[in-house]
Nucleic acid binder design. Structure first.
Lengths: 163, 163
DNA sequence: TATTGTTATACTCTATAACTATA
DNA sequence: TATAGTTATAGAGTATAACAATA
């Protein structure tokens, strides 16, 4: 159990982390939004996925997922076909163009990070990955915090799932 | 130096980290936006700060900083007085109300994190703080990354090392 | 001319609510 | 009734550019 000043410092790091994410965003190919990148990445890992499951993995509302997917479908990166087993659902998979785009994104990302983290060891990168994955798990595992509820409105937001 | 798959996994964790930040945001007092929290926190640490320096610490554009500060000034949490040494500048410091608000935020944050991270050791929290601080430093230190080659062939080659 | 700071505008991401279609 | 998905709307964060005032 950590102490209060440590928690405050952790939150400060969370806040400042936005600058890192924004630089990664600026590194993306033109016409390729961050939302599309997240969607392409997850579908690249788990093909033939449905919207509901994708929203769970993204840990955002399905309405948000729908918009990101539509953006990628409009550009020919994702194929959104009906699910024969459940006519409400739609099956998502990458098109060849989507795979190319995903490859380009991965290439750019690797290039940027290999510059920025050139003095990081393999083990240090691995530690950061593990700690951030565990952080996410810690926020997912627990329910609402007792004293400060104030947020129990009905929501279509899905629980956080670790991938 | 890490490998490509590790970088991709790191970026995946960055993406999913948004869910953690959103929950922290939902934990804030009403009428208290995330931008104000960041501003209050930094002014609480370094009083009598100027806009320019604050924007640097926040790692956002000064126009963004100006809006966040205005939000807090409007609510009486920050005092924005002219700098006698340079009439272009303005000096920022917390009001007593701002200190109270900052205290309340810290209290809520500690409460949330002590629940969520109840099974984290002091050392583990410290490791995450250090790694995230170093991550930020790694992105700060370097200038813009050299121009990306238009299209690199898919490859598992060793990433380019910059000295 | 350069710097400090503000404001206007536009873009991205997100959640909520209302809706359709199907189970 | 409940669930899968879409769309409309609003709120928050950010960057760029134009601007004013001062150095």
């Amino acid at each position: 159990m950590a102490e209060r000043t440590q928690y405050e410092e952790l939150v400060r790091q969370f806040s400042a982390f936005g600058a890192v994410k924004r630089e990664l965003g600026r590194n993306l190919p033109p016409d390729c939004l961050g939302g599309s990148v997240a969607v392409l990445t997850l579908i690249g890992r788990q093909s033939n996925i449905r919207m509901r499951r994708l929203a769970e993995l993204l840990a955002v509302d399905m309405s948000v997922t729908s918009r990101h997917v539509t953006h990628a479908v409009d550009r020919g990166w994702i194929e959104r076909s009906p699910d024969p087993a459940d006519k409400r659902s739609r099956i998502l998979r990458l098109t060849p163009e989507g795979q190319e785009r995903l490859e380009e994104i991965a290439e750019r990302t690797t290039q940027l990070l290999s510059h920025r983290l050139s003095d990081w060891s393999d083990d240090e990168v691995g530690q950061l990955i593990l700690l951030m994955a565990r952080l996410r798990a810690s926020f997912d595992d627990h329910g609402p915090v007792p004293v400060q509820p104030a947020r129990s409105a009905p929501s279509t937001r899905t629980p956080l799932i670790i991938t």
